[in-house]
């Protein structure tokens, strides 16, 4: 982060609904660097969409600040530099794909004379079959709608992209396309913020992921730290006995070239490089008099983390 300049800066963002009864966002602070691909994940109702809404100035924060490129999110300049893919592609069904794209080309205030060329280029990039370009949108399948949604983002080379659940309901070819676009943006140093349930694709392209739950950021992970081989181990200790101290756990992790994340709710969380180290870890813990009650293995990477957090929540 230090080598990159800030694109989005969120400070202590709070958003309440119903006169403060529901706190959708409960003090979010976050910095997203230029050119970073940033993922927002969390269960339904966690506040991801509300955060996205605030970033797009579609919702007004109750308190706190957001700065994008140094402007408030509702600034015209921010809108010129950014593009947005809504979760449900609810487009003007009566238009043809080409008409819809021309309309957005005009809305984006791009020069009229390049309109046809830009539109066709964008439609080609999302691999929408040219036979569908002049077809009415109401005849589009969900996959085609998503491609069209992506195509409208490409107009005018945005510097910042917001994607809301881009992968939901997408076929494997579509998911592949999305990945390609994301990588392309990454290459062009475009900042991307995406909301996703579809963790597989997120983890492959995101630089960092924020886990949002109950309107708070629970954890921010740098995905470069998570390799495919790595596993996450959660060790539940007996609540009656004394908890092991952090130094001890960190030392054990270090001997296995792993990483210790800390303790939450009698659960120790470790990350190990290889699955075979699991037994060694448990053995070491038991040897140090840790009252191990149960051991979970999160299956893999991000999805594991997400599920673990979610399970923890349920357990609570």
């Amino acid at each position: 982060m230090s080598e990159k300049t800030t694109c989005i800066k969120i400070e202590n963002l709070v958003k309440t609904y119903g006169r403060g009864r529901t706190r959708a966002l409960d003090g979010i602070s976050l910095e997203i660097g230029n050119g970073e691909v940033f993922g927002l994940i969390g269960p339904n109702g966690a506040g991801k969409t509300t955060l996205m809404g605030c970033l797009l100035s579609l919702l007004r924060p109750t308190s706190g600040d957001i700065h994008i490129f140094g402007y408030t999110p509702d600034n015209l300049r921010v809108k010129e530099l950014s593009a947005f893919l809504p979760e449900r592609p609810n487009f003007d069904a009566w238009m043809t794909a080409r008409q819809f794209m021309s309309y957005h080309h005009m809305l984006a205030k791009l020069p009229h004379k390049t309109s046809k060329q830009d539109v066709e280029e964008a439609l080609r990039q999302v691999e929408l079959d040219p036979s569908a370009w002049d077809r009415r949108i109401k005849k589009f399948s969900r996959g085609m709608l998503q491609r069209l949604g992506l195509a409208q983002m490409l107009l005018g080379d945005p510097k910042l992209c917001f994607l809301d659940e881009p992968g939901s309901g997408m076929d494997p070819i579509g998911a592949n396309l999305l990945r390609k676009l994301l990588l392309n943006w990454k290459k062009k140093n475009v900042t991307v913020v995406l909301n996703s349930h579809h963790l597989d694709e997120v983890e492959r392209v995101c630089d960092r992921v924020a886990f949002i739950k109950g309107g708070r950021i629970h954890q921010i992970e740098e995905l470069s730290n998570i390799s495919k081989e790595e596993i996450t181990i959660i060790v539940k200790c007996s609540p009656e006995l004394e908890m092991p101290d952090d130094v001890l756990c960190s030392d054990i992790a270090a001997t296995l070239e792993g990483h210790y994340f800390g303790i939450t709710e009698h659960c120790l969380r470790f990350r190990l490089k290889h699955e075979k180290d699991k037994a060694s870890l448990v053995k070491a813990l038991v040897e140090k008099q840790v009252a191990v009650e149960e051991v979970f293995q999160e299956r893999r990477g991000l999805e594991d983390l997400f599920i673990a957090l979610h399970n923890e929540d349920l357990r609570r």
Binding site: L56, E80, K109, F162
Partner: peptide
């Protein structure tokens, strides 16, 4: 659904 519809519109420089 116009909330969604308009949200796309107002994400544009308008």
């Amino acid at each position: 659904n116009d909330g969604e519809y308009l949200s796309l519109l107002f994400a544009r420089p308008l």
